[in-house]
Design a protein around this nucleic acid. Sequence first.
DNA 1: TCGATTATCCGACACTTTGTAAAAAAAGTC
DNA 2: GACTTTTTTTACAAAGTGTCGGATAATCGA
Lengths: 195, 195
Amino acid sequence: MSEHEKSKTDPRVLRTRQLLKGALIELLKETDIDKITVNRIAAYATINRVTFYLHYRDIPDMLEKMAEEMAEDIERAMSRTMQEKQGKTGDVVLLGLLEHIAANADFYKTIIGSRRIPVFHERLRNVFIQKIGDGMTDDMLVKRGIQKDVAVWFSSAALLGTIASWLRSDMPYSPQFLARQFALLLRTEELQTED
Amino acid sequence: MSEHEKSKTDPRVLRTRQLLKGALIELLKETDIDKITVNRIAAYATINRVTFYLHYRDIPDMLEKMAEEMAEDIERAMSRTMQEKQGKTGDVVLLGLLEHIAANADFYKTIIGSRRIPVFHERLRNVFIQKIGDGMTDDMLVKRGIQKDVAVWFSSAALLGTIASWLRSDMPYSPQFLARQFALLLRTEELQTED
DNA sequence: TCGATTATCCGACACTTTGTAAAAAAAGTC
DNA sequence: GACTTTTTTTACAAAGTGTCGGATAATCGA
């Protein structure tokens, strides 16, 4: 999906990791995570099984590293739209996020849409929690009697879960529409315009 | 946690399953799910390993059955408060749900608070999706320009995720307080006072 | 281009886990 | 106490795991 290791890295390790990660993604499309073994990943990637252990400790370790890369991609996508369309706040970041996911739908559908790989959800939720926590001013909540941490839990879970459901049902709505729905449901607009 | 098999069932199978389920819960408190084997469950439960296979196909199957039992408990807890305090709608069900979880916090903290066992989240989300979908009237949303399925995705994910975070941080708020926070965040109140 | 370095492949090893089988022992039912 | 059902015991084949050491191949630097 993206080039994380720039130059300097031996092209052989690049190729190997690409093949292994690609193999895992493909296997995840047809098989449950529990049934996936190092054997099968290596076989699908046409890489020797021993070579796998030169790059990852085990499958959970591999998933963690892939989740980390995903988080970097996501954060990059969000900060990019921040720079492009400065002035507007939250909504634009959200739109950029959804557009990035839609653009790589094939990838995200398998790892986020799938219900059985918690690492990616976990990692993504942390990104959301941080972003949302940063963007949430106290006075937005206090006057409504809402506790900040509860609001952060709530919003990040809602965001993550809605995206997952959206992916699972093959994205019947456009990123623009969904971003608008979020705004309505979280009533960010009224809070911004009011008093 | 609760007695699902009433009489009629051989006390030996009751005892065995209780021991096995208890062992799994205990192991989940100290070990990651990936590291738990049938061997260790049986050993902890002081049950022969072969006996495990007389009750469950494998560990995922065992988790599924436990998730199903949890769902029954949850639904029972919700419909119970429905009967007790008739008249009031949504909020009371929510309160009953949170109180039930708080009462069995030890159990729910390990299976819902834990980030690594998707089955329970999955099963619980389905309960929420159904309940919320049933209780949501179209005109509650249409006039706000919100799509129903999006609202259901959003609310159930928010509910599930917030409960998970609440459990993870050792329930710093009372069920009453949290139920109120939900009402504020979902602005169900304004919607209920109408018609 | 050549030599040095580094990554991958190959065969092999000990170990754990899995799921199943058949028969004996134990516990529950009537 | 006889009968049924569950659990235990022992055993087995198959598969997966993680790690060697050495051979082979690809890459890098000069």
